[in-house]
Design a protein around this nucleic acid. Structure first.
Lengths: 198, 198
DNA sequence: GGTACTTCTTAACATACATCAATGTACAGG
DNA sequence: CCTGTACATTGATGTATGTTAAGAAGTACC
C-alpha cells in the first residue's frame, strides 16, 4: 500500500527524514472504507485519529431531533478525530463516516510519542498544528456568532473550494448551520448580485 | 507577588514538583490590568498566553459593523491567548480586555519548552489540555449549528455558573450569539416555565 | 427507455430572533 | 437629594431563516 500523501505530510510538513518515514510507515495501520461506511459512531470510544490519504470524510454531531450538524469535512492531508474521546477514553458524541471511498491511516494514541522518539521536533510541530487548528475553530465560532449565512457561505467557498466541488449542497448547508433551502436562496441572491455588477 | 492559583495549576494539574514550580515562578512575569484595560488589540501580534491568576478577561472578535462577539471568558485558572498569532507571528483579529481588575501571568512562546526541561511530562499534559480545549470548541460549534438560543443559554449557565454571576447579561448574549433583548426574553420564558412546573 | 432516487429549486407560510424605541431599576458621583 | 449612566425589560414591528410541499433536473438501475 502506497501512501504518497501521508509521506508528503510527514516529510514536508512535519520534518521527518525519508528514513524516519520508513520506520513510521511500518508502524501505522491503513484502513479502506467505502462510501457510507462509518469510522466512528456516537457512544463508542474513539481509538484513533484518522489521516485521510485519499477520499473524503465528514465529522458530525447529531442533535436531539437526529439532525446532522457537520463539524468538519476532511479531504486528503487532513487529520480528523474526536481527540477528547481518544485521550480521555470517553464515549464520543460524534460520528465520522466516508462520503467517498476513502483510504485512512490510523494513528493511535501513542503515535505522537512514537514519532517523537524517531524525529525529535515532531512534537513541537504537532503542537503548532494543534494551535492552528484551534485558531480555525475560533474563526468558525466568530462567524457563527456574528456573520450572516451569506457571508459564512462566501467564507466557506474561499476556504474550501475543493470540498465545495465534492459534496452536495445540503452538506454544505449543514456545515453552515442552515437548511438546504436557505442555502439555495443565498446562492440565488449571490447570482443575481453578480449579474447586476457585470 | 503571590500566585496561589498559578501554583495550584502547575502542581496539581500539570504535575510539577514544588521545587520545579519555584523555578518556573522565577521565570514568568506577572501583569496587573485594571477593568477596561486591554491585553491585546486587533492588528497587534500576540506575544503571550495569559494565565488568569485573579480576575476576569474576555476574548472577543469585532465583526464588520464593529459588534463584539465574545469567544471566551477567562476566569481564575484559565489560559487565554490568540495562540495562532503567537506561534505564527501574525497580527491578531481578536481583542482581549479585562472586565474586572485582573492579575495575569504572562507565558511567552518558549514557556512550554522551558517548563518541559524542568518537568518532563509537562509537554504531554499540555497536549491533553489542548485536546480538551479543542473538544470544547467543537461542542460550542455544534450548539451554534443546531441548538436554539434557549438551550445554548441553559448549557452556558450549567458550564459557567461562576461567569454568569460575574458578567452583565448583554455579555452573555454576545457569547451566545444573540441580542441582549432576546436573552431577556429567553429568561422570561424560562422563568414562566419553571413557575408552571412548581 | 422508463422508473426510482437524490439533489436542487421555488413558493407560501411560520417562527425565532433582530431592531428600534420606551420605560424601569439600580447605582455612583456631585 | 438629584442626576447621569449602565443595564434590563417590554412592546411593536421587521427580517432572516425554517418548514412544508411541490416540481424540475440529473443520475443510476432494471
Amino acid at each position: 500500500m502506497d501512501l504518497p500523501n501521508f509521506k508528503k505530510h510527514l516529510i514536508e510538513k512535519m520534518g521527518l527524514t525519508t528514513e524516519a518515514f520508513v520506520q513510521v510507515e511500518r508502524y501505522v495501520k491503513v484502513k479502506k472504507v467505502v462510501k457510507g461506511e462509518f469510522l466512528l459512531k456516537q457512544g463508542k470510544v474513539c481509538k484513533h485519529s484518522f489521516f485521510v490519504e485519499q477520499g473524503l470524510l465528514r465529522f458530525y454531531a447529531l442533535n436531539e431531533e437526529g439532525k446532522e450538524n457537520i463539524l468538519q469535512f476532511a479531504t486528503e492531508h487532513w487529520i480528523v478525530s474526536d481527540r477528547g474521546s481518544v485521550y480521555f477514553k470517553e464515549p464520543t458524541t460524534y460520528c465520522i463516516d466516508a462520503f467517498e471511498d476513502t483510504v485512512v491511516v490510523l494513528l493511535d494514541e501513542s503515535f505522537i510519542e512514537q514519532v517523537s522518539k524517531i524525529s525529535p521536533d515532531f512534537r513541537q510541530r504537532n503542537e503548532r498544528l494543534l494551535q492552528n487548528h484551534i485558531r480555525h475553530l475560533y474563526k468558525r465560532i466568530s462567524l457563527l456568532l456574528g456573520a450572516s449565512a451569506k457571508s459564512r457561505y462566501l467564507d466557506f467557498i474561499k476556504m474550501y473550494p475543493d470540498v465545495m466541488l465534492r459534496v452536495p449542497q445540503w452538506m454544505i448547508a449543514s456545515y453552515l448551520g442552515i437548511t438546504p433551502e436557505s442555502l439555495s436562496r443565498v446562492r440565488k441572491t449571490l447570482a443575481e448580485e453578480n449579474f447586476k455588477i457585470h
